[in-house]
Computed example of a mutant assay.
Amino acid sequence: MLLRAVIQGLSFSIVGLLTIGLPPLLLTALRFAIAAIVLLPLVWRTLGQRPRLRGLALYIVMGLCQAVFFGAMFWAAHRTSALSMAVLSVSVPFLAYCLGIGFGVEPSSMRLLGILALGAGGALGMAWAGNAGGLGGMHLGRVEAVYLVGCLGLALYAVLSRWGLSSHCISARAEVRTFWSLVFGALLVGVLGLATEDLRGLENLTASDALLLAYLGTLSTGGTFWLMQHATPVLTPGSVTSYAYVPPFVSMLLLFMTEPQSISWRWLPGALLVLLAMSLLLRRRAWPPAETCVMASHNPSSSSIRSTGVR
């Protein structure tokens, strides 16, 4: 999950290299499609075993969660400040934690809540530092409410992944779960893009844009979603989504490398809180391990398997 966070942090700078004016939703649909194609060799033998109706419905809902998040993010990006979006993004781990309790895949843990609070405080501190030590760009209104719904979709994606695996209605293989959720995500985001954006905007796509898009689709989308699904059996939704506090830290390091004059004491409190939260998270044991549930379901005689914590 730390690797996933680093890839995401680096991707923010790479996205900024794309030609301005390209339709963002259609680009996202292309990223999802590229990611699914890259995963195709890994899941080719399983394509004949299509998901059952219950699993198919869950994959569609997971794809819808992705479409809601990216749709809300791109819609809000042109209508509110980056500070407002950064602050609202802090809510994702808390939403995942609360939803996870409701779905029965997250234990009630004051320790985890404390870690989430530390990480949130650190992320907010870095948002404050990135806004030159002020909160004047922070707004709360209709646009922010839409983006918060998108954050809810991202949190729900993590919860449904864990719930679907624990209830055995989706594949036990991370690459299969990633592939089908990306396929439906690409379809739903693509439909949303075709309905709201001009397809002719893709005519401005250059060769360098295509290369960047290939990288983003392969690593930033396919790689990060696979890593998330790979962690789902052993980490609860709140723990998985809490690593979202790391990308701002990575972006901060890149900023210091490219613009050393931006270094100031304001970044220190937030950075230290994020590092402390991540160190505590790495020491925390996950509960309950979904892999143990899956193993037990395939072996009825193993009902006595003890659910031990997995790092």
Rank of each mutant, 00 (worst) to 15 (best):
A214H: 09
M252D: 00
G223W: 02
P237N: 13
M252N: 00
L213C: 06
S239G: 05
Y243V: 05
V234R: 13
S251W: 00
D209Q: 05
G222K: 01
S242Q: 14
V234N: 13
H230I: 05
G222C: 02
L219I: 13
Q229R: 06
A214K: 09
T224L: 08
Y243G: 05
A214D: 09
Y245R: 00
L235W: 13
T241H: 07
G217M: 04
A244T: 12
T236E: 15
D209F: 03
V250W: 04
G238V: 02
L254N: 05
A231V: 09
F249Q: 00
T236H: 05
L219Y: 10
P247K: 09
L211Q: 11
L211I: 12
S251T: 13
Y245M: 06
Y243H: 12
Y245H: 08
D209K: 02
M252L: 12
M228L: 15
T241N: 12
T218P: 03
T241I: 05
W226R: 02
M252T: 11
T224G: 09
L235K: 12
V250Q: 08
M252Q: 00
T241K: 03
L219V: 14
L235A: 15
G222A: 04
P233Y: 06
F225N: 06
S239C: 07
P233E: 07
A231N: 09
S242C: 13
L216K: 03
S220E: 05
L227R: 00
L219S: 08
Q229F: 13
G222I: 01
T221Q: 08
T236Y: 05
Q229A: 14
L219P: 07
L254A: 06
M252V: 05
Q229L: 11
G238A: 11
G238N: 09
S242K: 05
G217N: 04
F249M: 10
L213M: 12
L211R: 13
T232W: 03
P237A: 13
D209I: 03
L212I: 12
L227S: 01
V240M: 15
T241R: 04
T221N: 06
P237T: 12
L254M: 12
V246H: 04
Y245S: 02
L213D: 02
V240I: 15
T224K: 09
L227E: 02
L227D: 01
V250R: 06
A214R: 09
Y215Q: 08
T218S: 13
T236M: 11
M228Y: 12
D209P: 05
L211T: 11
